[in-house]
Design a protein around this nucleic acid. Structure first.
Lengths: 311, 311
DNA sequence: CGCTGTCATACCCGGTCGGTATCACCGCGG
DNA sequence: CCGCGGTGATACCGACCGGGTATGACAGCG
C-alpha cells in the first residue's frame, strides 16, 4: 500500500524539476520509458495524480507540489543520515562547529576556551562557511553544531541555546557626515543618497533588487565600506573587526540580534551535549540570570522539557 | 556509493530494535538469511559496521545508534509525506488543526471565528487529541497546524507564531485550606501532604515516578481535583472549564506559558499561511504591540525572514 | 500531410531480492 | 566429551521487477 522507496522519490523530484520525462531520464542516466512507468506506479500506489500530462508539456498538480517538497526533504535527510553515520563511525569525540567566517570572533573564542577547559571535552573542528551556509551544513550532516543568528538565519528544525543578544550598529565610512552622530535610526540610513545599503544573499542565494552592492563575505564588505561605496547594518560585536576607516554608530530602532548555538533537534550526540552544557554555563557567567524563570537548561539528549502543568 | 533505500532502513531499524536477526526477520515477514545479507550490503555500502555480532547476541555500535535515529526520522518522514500528499489531493482548501482536548477554549474559539470571517478562508477541521499528541499529528502529516504550549510541548522542527502568554495557576479543591490564599509559590504546593501534584505523561508516554495520580485527560483531572485527591498546575486560561468545586490560585514563580500556533517548518500550504495570517492579526487586535520591534509577521511560505544586516 | 517531439505501451533481459538448505560457531548439559 | 539447540553466515536457486529497445498514439507545425 505505502512504500515510497527513495529511488522513486529521486525519480519524481527529477521529473518535477524538469517537467519533461526525456530530459529527466537523461539526467538520471536512464531511458525514458522505465521512468514513465516508475512515476505511473508511484501515482497508482499513492492513488494520486502528481503530474498533469497535457499536450506540450507536463505540469505539477497541487499534490505533486506537496510531494515535491516532502521528497526533497526526505532525500536531503537520507544524504545527511549517510554523512552523520559515517562521521560517527570514524571520528568519535570530535565535533564540527559551523560558524560564519569572520563573525562573533570573541564569543567563539570564549566558547572554545571554556570548552577546552572542560574535562573530557570533545575535540572541536571549526568550519568557517559563507553567509547562510551553517543551516545547510547542519541539515546535511556536515556539521554537528553551529553559531547562528536570530532573526536572520532559518532556525526551523534546530534546537538552540541563546548565547548573546546585542544591538545592531550601522557601519559607515569614517569620513561620512553621518559618522559624526552618536546614534541613528533605520530611517536615517535607509535612504542616504550616496551610501546605498549593502545587500545580503537570501536563503536561496539570490539577492533582492536594490541599489547597494551584493555582499559575499565580510572582507569584501569591509573594503566597500572603507571605500565609501556602501553602508551596512551589523550586530555590535562586529566592531571587533572594524578598520580605522570605519565608524560604528548604534541603531536605536533596529531589532536586536541574538547569537545562538544551534544543533539538530534530535541530536543525541554526547559531544554536542557537552558543548551545549559549557555554552549554557558560559551564559550564566557572563550575563545576569534571565528575567523569566526558565524551566531548565535544555539538553539535546532527551528534549524532555515537559514538566509540571498544562492546560 | 550512497543510496539508502527505505527498504534497507526499514530492515535496519527492525534489526536494531530487536537486536536479533531471526526475530527481526519474523517481524518483517521474511526469512533470516536475506535480512542478514541486506544488512551486510548496507554496512558495506556505508563502509561502516553498524552492528557488533558477538557470541550470544547483537549490539549496536555508535554509528549504528546514529543511523537508527536518522532512519526512524526518515521513515516517519516518508509516512508523513504519503499522508500529506494524499490529503493535498483529496481535500483542497481544507486544513486540520490539532489541539489539546479541553484546552484554550476561548483562544481557539476566537481563532476560528476570526478565520471564518476571513474571505476565501479554508475550511478548518479541529482535531482534538490527547496530551502531547499534537506534535506527532503534525509530524506525521495527520494535521496541518496545531495549538501547542511552550515550554511544555516539543516545538523542534516547527515554525510557530506566539498567540497568548499567561501565568500559571494552581487548581485546588475549593474546600482546601490553601484555597483561601490569594497567591501561591511553587514551594507552597510542591509538598502538600494530602494533595500530591498530578503527573502528566512525558513525550514518550511514560510517567515519572511520584505520589500523584497519572493524568490522561482533562476531565479525569477535574474529577480528581474535585474529589480532593490531587492538585494541578495549569495555565490561567484553564479557568474556563473549572467546576464550582475548584479554586484557581495564581502562582507567582511558575514559568509563564505561551500558547503558539505551530506548523511544519517547510509548509507551503496556502491554507496554513492564511490561518497564520489571521492568527497574527488576532494577536495585534487583542494585545499591545510587542515590546521588541519584530522583523515582520512570519509567514510560513518563504520563511525568508532574512533582511538587512548581519555580522 | 508528413515531420518532429511528446509520453505511453509492448516486450525482453538480467540483476537482485527473497526463499530453502546448510554451515560454522558457541554455550550447555548429559 | 560430545551431541543439542540456537545464533548468524553462506550457497544456491527461482521469480519478480527494474531497466533497455522498439514502437505506438497524439498533438503542434511548417
Amino acid at each position: 500500500m505505502d512504500a515510497l522507496e527513495t529511488r522513486e522519490l529521486r525519480y519524481f523530484v527529477t521529473v518535477a524539476e524538469e517537467l519533461h520525462f526525456s530530459r529527466a531520464a537523461e539526467r538520471l542516466g536512464m531511458a525514458q520509458p522505465p521512468l514513465s512507468r516508475a512515476i505511473q506506479q508511484l501515482e497508482r500506489r499513492l492513488g494520486v495524480t502528481l503530474l498533469e500530462r497535457n499536450r506540450r508539456g507536463v505540469t505539477l498538480t497541487g499534490a505533486g507540489q506537496v510531494l515535491l517538497d516532502e521528497a526533497r526533504a526526505i532525500l536531503d535527510g537520507t544524504a545527511a543520515a549517510v554523512r552523520r553515520t559515517r562521521r560517527a563511525a570514524t571520528s568519535t569525540n570530535r565535533l564540527t562547529l559551523a560558524t560564519k567566517a569572520g563573525s562573533n570572533h570573541e564569543l567563539l573564542q570564549k566558547l572554545l576556551n571554556a570548552h577546552a577547559a572542560e574535562p573530557d571535552a570533545a575535540e572541536i573542528e571549526v568550519l568557517l562557511c559563507g553567509m547562510g551556509d551553517q543551516a545547510r551544513m547542519l541539515r546535511d550532516g556536515r556539521a554537528d553544531a553551529a553559531l547562528m543568528q536570530r532573526p536572520f538565519d532559518a532556525l526551523a528544525g534546530f534546537d538552540t541555546e541563546d548565547l548573546l543578544t546585542e544591538q545592531q550598529v550601522a557601519i559607515l565610512p569614517a569620513g561620512h557626515p553621518l559618522a559624526a552622530r552618536t546614534s541613528l535610526t533605520m530611517a536615517d540610513i535607509s535612504n542616504v543618497p550616496d551610501l546605498p545599503v549593502a545587500r545580503w544573499p537570501r536563503q536561496d542565494g539570490t539577492y533582492e533588487p536594490g541599489p547597494g552592492p551584493e555582499i559575499h563575505d565580510q572582507s569584501q564588505l569591509a573594503q566597500l565600506i572603507a571605500l565609501g561605496h556602501t553602508l551596512a547594518v551589523l550586530c555590535a560585536s562586529s566592531r571587533s573587526w572594524l578598520w580605522n576607516a570605519h565608524t560604528a554608530i548604534p541603531l536605536t530602532d533596529a531589532p536586536h540580534v541574538t547569537t545562538v548555538l544551534a544543533w539538530p533537534a534530535h541530536s543525541r550526540s554526547r559531544a554536542v551535549a557537552g558543548l551545549v552544557r559549557t555554552a549554557a554555563q558560559l551564559l550564566l557567567v557572563h550575563h545576569s540570570p534571565s528575567p523569566a524563570p526558565r524551566s531548565a537548561p535544555r539538553r539535546p539528549a532527551a528534549a524532555a522539557d515537559r514538566q509540571v502543568g498544562d492546560g
